[in-house]
Computed example of a mutant assay.
Amino acid sequence: MMNPIDQNIIGRRSIKKFKPDPIDTEEIIDLLNVARWAPNHTLNEPWRFQLYTGAGKEKFVQAFLDAMTQKDGTIPQTALNKAQYFRSIPVHVVAIMPVDPRQRRWDEDFGAISSLLQNFQLAAWERGIGMIWRSNDWIYNPVFRNAIGIAPAEKIVATMMIGYPQHVPEQGQRTDIRNKLTIIDK
């Protein structure tokens, strides 16, 4: 018999189709405050966030379009279509971490913010809010990064696209962990 935490982990889905219903900014802040209890070495909290909602989403969308603009000044139709899709999503959260030149610190910070983002997804799912964690190529584009104020010493870990699910995908297959586990007992 599964407990509620197990059920929430197994039941969570990445959502790509959202209802147009707005989500209160305070609810997103509350969810991030829950998520911040992720493990992080020395409690350095290696994260910051940008939340785009309402009319503020247009800054996110315009940064994306600027990054997609070709040398001749045109924007591919696929990018224009994606911009319309981005406009339809109620909330975008950009998750940002500092870039530390020490590999161990970088690894620990990336692990910490990734744990926070999973907590965020699970806490939101429990409240009926869905999201998808995106790390598309354009988040590395200097035009996009500059447009939203990402410093050279920062990394965008994810753009979280958030809303109430319009469609919840079926559960995909996962490999039994026994096929990925080596037990050393002697």
Rank of each mutant, 00 (worst) to 15 (best):
R13M: 01
R13H: 07
S14I: 03
S14W: 00
I15W: 01
I15S: 06
K16F: 09
K16N: 09
K16W: 03
K17Y: 11
K17Q: 14
F18G: 11
F18T: 11
F18Y: 14
K19N: 13
K19W: 04
P20G: 11
P20N: 02
D21W: 07
D21G: 06
P22F: 00
I23A: 01
D24G: 03
D24L: 07
T25H: 12
T25P: 07
T25R: 14
T25N: 09
E26K: 13
E26Y: 06
E26A: 14
E27N: 12
I28D: 00
I28P: 13
I28M: 00
D30C: 14
L31H: 02
L31R: 01
L31G: 09
L32A: 08
N33E: 15
A35V: 12
R36T: 11
R36Y: 02
R36D: 05
W37I: 08
W37A: 03
W37E: 04
W37T: 13
A38D: 01
A38E: 02
P39C: 08
P39V: 07
P39L: 05
N40P: 08
H41V: 03
H41G: 02
H41W: 13
H41K: 10
T42K: 15
L43I: 10
L43P: 00
N44W: 04
N44R: 14
E45D: 15
E45R: 15
P46D: 05
P46T: 11
P46W: 03
W47I: 08
W47S: 09
F49S: 05
F49A: 07
F49L: 07
F49G: 07
Q50M: 15
Y52G: 05
Y52L: 00
T53V: 01
G54V: 08
A55T: 12
